[in-house]
Amino acid sequence: MMFYINKTNCISPQQTFGDIDIEQLHASVDNKLKVLEPPYPAFTANAIRRMSKSTRMGCGAALPLLADSTQPDGIIIGTQVSGMEENGKFLNQIIEYDEDMLTPGNFVQGTPNTISSQIALISNNKNYNITHVHRGLAFENAVIDTAMLLNESPQSTYLLGGVDEICANNHTLDTLADWFKKEDCANNDLYKSNTNGSLSGEGAAMFYVSNNKTNALAQLKAITTIHNTDVDVVKEHIRNFLLQNLPQGEKIDLLLSGENGDKRALHYYTFCEQLLDSGTPVARFKHLCGEYPTASSFALWLACNFVSGQATVPEHMLKKAAKVSALKNILIYNTHKTAQHSCMLVSIP
């Protein structure tokens, strides 16, 4: 099962929305990579005021894709806890006002299906609508759902997205759980770091997808997910994934690696690199977007731009000097918190 990506949009901590410029790296601030939010001409001031940040950037990235397209037959979003900032505000109300005289707005905006449902509401789309929340594989499950939908209904089109936001609560909880660095670390030094944790990130990447190859940017050729911490199991799984899905005689021309400066995750990425021909260029992306559960959607956006030639791989992404040319097959490998892993194979259409 696979599909074509016909259009894509991304709001991220880098200049990825509108005029794309990923050569110039925007710096992290206080160990966080926050999105550069564009103006949102499609929303009224009142609508924006009520939206959570994740809903704002999710709708902001999605709606331009829908503007001059056929109404998609479904909206499929992956997110770990979008709306958690709103949840946090409601949590604070509960405790600080001792469960009395609360306003429900934050509670309603805090449910993670707000993104998919707001896109549906604004674009008056009454079709299939779903939200996958499976932490570090939330976006991958959304991809699998979309691939199944296109297998079931080959003429259809779908809107697929991955969104997560940095908010005070998830940043604090994940820092306590040792997943974000406690010492100061700048994003351009991320891979030199040899401690636990990464930098906190966020973003929204949206894809308009179908079985229509005409004018497609890229083809999502295959995807797999793994739940395991055993590096040998993960390595074997990736090896099989490549054997089964990489056409004979072809090779991986670029590995998009989710390496994130967390010393506990490094060996998974190293083993993955060793599975490929020596000399295969490796490009890392977490210093651009930070670590978040649906960061693989940012990687898929990058892969679409690289295989379609809309962007070239900037020097600062390359792990070691390499010549990147004639990109046909890109492997995205990512692990979230070392227990969830995924591979996506992205090719020219």
């Binding site: 299906n113 939200t131 996958h132 929340v133 499976h134 932490r135 699998i144 997910t225 739940h227």
Partner: peptide, 20 residues
């Protein structure tokens, strides 16, 4: 579901959904 997956060492597709 991550707890159930790891408790029973499940290796197939695992997913969590929230549409209220």
């Amino acid at each position: 579901n991550l707890f159930i997956q790891s408790h029973y060492k499940m290796t197939g597709v695992v997913n969590t959904m929230n549409t209220a």
